[in-house]
Design a protein around this nucleic acid. Sequence first.
DNA 1: CCCCTGTCCGTACGCTGTACGGTGCAGCGT
DNA 2: ACGCTGCACCGTACAGCGTACGGACAGGGG
Lengths: 223, 223
Amino acid sequence: MSKGNRTRTALGREEIARAALEMLDEEGVQALTMRRLADRLGAGTMTLYGYFRSKQELLDAAVGAAVEDFHWSPDTGGSLRDRLRAHQKAVREMLLVHPALPQLRAHQPMVQPAAFRLSEPAMRMLLDAGFPPEEAARTFRVLFVYVLGSMLFGPDELTAEQRRGIKAALLLLPDDEFPAIARMPDELAASMGGEVQFDYGLDLILDGIEARAARHSAASSHQ
Amino acid sequence: MSKGNRTRTALGREEIARAALEMLDEEGVQALTMRRLADRLGAGTMTLYGYFRSKQELLDAAVGAAVEDFHWSPDTGGSLRDRLRAHQKAVREMLLVHPALPQLRAHQPMVQPAAFRLSEPAMRMLLDAGFPPEEAARTFRVLFVYVLGSMLFGPDELTAEQRRGIKAALLLLPDDEFPAIARMPDELAASMGGEVQFDYGLDLILDGIEARAARHSAASSHQ
DNA sequence: CCCCTGTCCGTACGCTGTACGGTGCAGCGT
DNA sequence: ACGCTGCACCGTACAGCGTACGGACAGGGG
């Protein structure tokens, strides 16, 4: 059987997925087209369909490629809070490198098993801290939603034009109907992204988690 | 000038936007097509472009129509925590009626000034509770990200097929590489949406907000 | 009556994802 | 050395998308 040596002919699932991921990160989700990707690879459009059944399958593979870049060394010490924060910050860093991931995740949940690499460390920390499985899952979910949501709804990727549009909309709000918002366009604009904003919210959530963790460790020491 | 009475001929910006919103809510974002919307209205496709310069402008108008459905009676008493929770739950209810809103928001921030109707009450509560403007904005932003993120990443709208895919992926994870996750497929699946999950996270975040509010009210009483 | 203005829409263009079927080369049996 | 077979590649085609252009047609003012 002529197995395994056909990759000498340049193309393969891995290469295509990586090229798709690059394109995604550089130009955004809507810019990734089968034709444009094929051009970039110096291939014909339909060649890609020899490796992936559909565009969706290709996108899944690109997600898998991005996720494989993430590795977490589990042995950093410190409090549960510090370790959770470090982990979530690491996830965010990865998402900043691959900004297309949250958008893809919004359309369809992770199909790639490798995607669980991201959540495993945090789940483990919570279980080790005494959270019962269901609450650990719920707690992790809050962090998950916040970290991904910050990427998607925090406009780190806003056009200058969009920024101007928001500012303009804020300025012409009637003061009497929006007394709170109309007075603070600058604060609102500042709150819409950036590392300071992310850290503020992360710490706020970690406060809540820490309080619950204290309850659990107290309960287990009673036993 | 023949101004104002042309709506007698059935069509108008308002009707079109409302029809678009219905279509969005019933069939999802990707199902809304200029052609299909025109058919539904009994009009030609290009007629719509007489009322909206582009599909994007139409989508913005649909967002505006959805947001106008939301009214908040500001006078409910109770603690800051209770009022914030009631408000965020009301927002979530509106989003459940119009599930397309978070997806639209993910692609482009709110251009409709009316969208600020949603955030005004919460901002006001935070300012009244003594939060300085910048921190109020940051705090609100955390709630905002969580509420929208819960809609988008919580799979309230998951296909049964997708659900099965996740479950299958979870079941064939190698236990040695994912010791935490592989043991709790059911808990994880349960954590991915639903009102219980949402309330858990909302209360967790409100804990953090309440702690900060206590600090602010203490500071203001010192003065 | 005619013309003018404004609403409506048929047609067309360039784009998308993808099905189908052909082309050309690598490797093999003889 | 030769012909066959299988497979990687891709040219072409089709339905559907957003939307530009220009024509059809109705209603009101001269």
